[in-house]
Amino acid sequence: MATKSGRTISHIKERSIKQLLIRWEFLLVLIFLGVNIMNANLSPYYLNIDSLFTNINGFMVKGIIALPMAYILLLGDIDLSVGGNVCLSATVLGIVYNATGSIWLGILACLATGTLCGALNGLVMTKFTELAPMIVTLATNIIFRGLSERILGDGSTGGMQKVDWFGKIFYGRVGGIVPYPFIIFAVLALVFGLVMHKTVFGRQMFAIGENKRAAAYAGIKVEKIRFLVFALTGFICGFAAIIYCANLGSVKSNVADGFELEAISMCVLGGISTAGGKGTMVGAVIAIFIIGLLRYGLNLINLSGQTIRIVLGILLILVVLFPTIREAIQNRKKAVK
């Protein structure tokens, strides 16, 4: 497509079948189908709607955290503190509930804690732009989990499920079929996707991830947006902590361990580049389901949780190698011609 001045506009892509086929999301759909076919063959009960939703419910907390993580990666940042944040927020929920007897106060405190933790990350990151996000969130992850450890010691906090409806946040089902966490995830994913792809804010995030300096010169308030996204991530962590509490019933200082890496894996598999500026929410959502369901399927064939990591690791490496391999093949084709 050529403009008046004769230059081509590269971002307007031709929509052909071939273009669609080499899109990453298409490949993800294939992997997704493959995983489902594998699972269905392994267990005759897999496609039972009831058990399927039970399985999906198992990874919805991680999925919810992966949504804001996609924003973070899109900006070219990284947040290793989400695991610690969920842990601390859940701890605060339990403590405040047990101290005051009010579940609402607990939930409020939980959300406030999550948001504060995220805002702290954002504040440090935007005031000290020289620092790598990785090292800041590495430190704050240790601090958040450390605070939870200080509060709980060797013990745990819980009892929230005495409040009848609280446990239902996780175990309740609409019409006895669709669980609440799944609906919450679906709504959030839709909102996150629309904001990312259809709003000015979303375009600005892409611009920042592509080239921070150019974005700043174009008048985008880079640091403000980064701060907002980190605070938002914190808020979602607090939100996820509520669902997690409803699931677990009691909180120890080691809960949500490794969630940060799992959420990042989901995003990366979904095609969101950790270098920033690339990716789609659709891809991330499909990847969340691929990893979650694959984990379940491998459980079915009695692979231990530890060995499943090998498969996930290989999948992750292959995914990130894919562009290089494709490029190499294309180069070879050109050379042959």
Binding site: G313, I317, V320, T324
Partner: peptide
Amino acid sequence: GKVIPIIATLGMQYIFRGLTY
């Protein structure tokens, strides 16, 4: 493979730890 170090080592971490078990 031109993979970003943190992602490559994240994947390898899974693989090595899984292999250990």
